[in-house]
């Protein structure tokens, strides 16, 4: 025991570590159980491979992604370029590797922002209720009635091109689902005895929300969040396909598929390979998400 620290604070600290370790225990148990799920492990493996090759893209890619040699346009796969060269003489493989960064980052960042924003707002709305809840619920209902892609196209037109603008455009509507999940979770937890007990014990609202309710509703958020990463990657590809995504110097799979679509009659490899890798990544992320669902929240209706 350290001098000057009151017993109460010490207890709190101990309690905090206890809780944290319980949580960590839970997480490691989850991972142990997840390990038995072969499909999920395969998914995790593929995701890790793609992620690692994205991180070390500048090392393993045979060419810089923006190096073009116009003389080599449309070189077929094999030979100098393993997966062929595109319409500007870029190496398709190098661009796929670098493009993975964008897809993965868009998936992780948009989902993280959406989960945090939607989760926090949802807990607050569910816990306090009242006008804030009513307002937010109406707002989400209105937003849900917009088709996602149209909303994102409009947002991109408003914000202009760029990586972060794309992230914001996707988050504009992305948080809504997590808001609704969190709010529904809070509503069903709030009625339970332990919350009542905590209230009677005089614990603050913030503490109750953070340390009592949150751990009990975090599972569905994690599961749906993982699954939505795949959705976000496809959305990014769709926007890039429509030509309003990320500037061309950063290769993205969506814009590569779109470029390839323009030359579909004379160079099949341009859109086939990025499409395949996109499918592989989304599929793997979904496998992990589905594995998580089976472990964490078997009753959750995901797809």
């Amino acid at each position: 025991m350290i001098k000057g620290v009151s017993a109460r604070t010490h207890m709190r600290r101990k309690l905090f570590f206890l809780r944290l370790s319980l949580w960590a225990e839970g997480v490691s148990a989850t991972i142990r159980r997840l390990r038995r799920n072969k499909a999920a492990m395969l998914g995790a493996l593929v995701v890790s491979i793609i992620t690692l090759s994205a991180v070390f893209a500048h090392v393993i890619a045979p060419y810089p992604p923006d190096e073009m040699s116009l003389a080599d346009r449309f070189s077929p796969p094999g030979g100098k370029y393993i997966l062929g060269a595109d319409h500007l003489g870029h190496d398709v493989l190098s661009r796929i590797l670098h493009g993975a960064r964008v897809s993965i980052l868009v998936g992780i960042i948009t989902v993280t922002i959406s989960v945090i924003a939607g989760g926090v707002l949802g807990i607050l709305a569910g816990y306090y209720g009242g006008w804030f809840d009513a307002l937010m619920s109406r707002l989400t209902e209105v937003l849900l009635a917009f088709p996602y892609l149209i909303f994102a196209i409009g947002a991109m037109a408003m914000l202009g091109p760029g990586f972060w603008n794309l992230v914001w455009a996707l988050c504009f509507k992305g948080w809504v689902e997590f808001f609704r999940l969190a709010r529904a979770g809070v509503l069903s937890e709030k009625a339970k005895e332990y919350v009542e007990a905590a209230k009677v014990l005089g614990r603050s609202d913030l503490e109750i929300m953070g340390s009592e309710i949150l751990p009990n509703i975090v599972n569905p958020l994690m599961v749906v969040g993982t699954l939505r990463m795949g959705t976000m990657m496809v959305m990014e590809a769709s926007l890039s396909f429509l030509g309003i995504g990320i500037p061309p110097r950063i290769p993205t799979w969506g814009s590569m598929i779109q470029d390839g679509y323009r030359f579909i009659l004379n160079a099949w490899w341009l859109s086939t390979f990025p499409g395949l890798i996109l499918v592989a990544l989304v599929l793997s992320v979904n496998l992990v998400g589905e594995g998580l669902r089976e472990v964490l929240d078997p009753d959750l209706q995901t797809f």
Partner: peptide, 8 residues
């Protein structure tokens, strides 16, 4: 290079 939608 940066790609835009024309009106924007």
């Amino acid at each position: 290079a940066r790609t835009w939608e024309w009106s924007a």
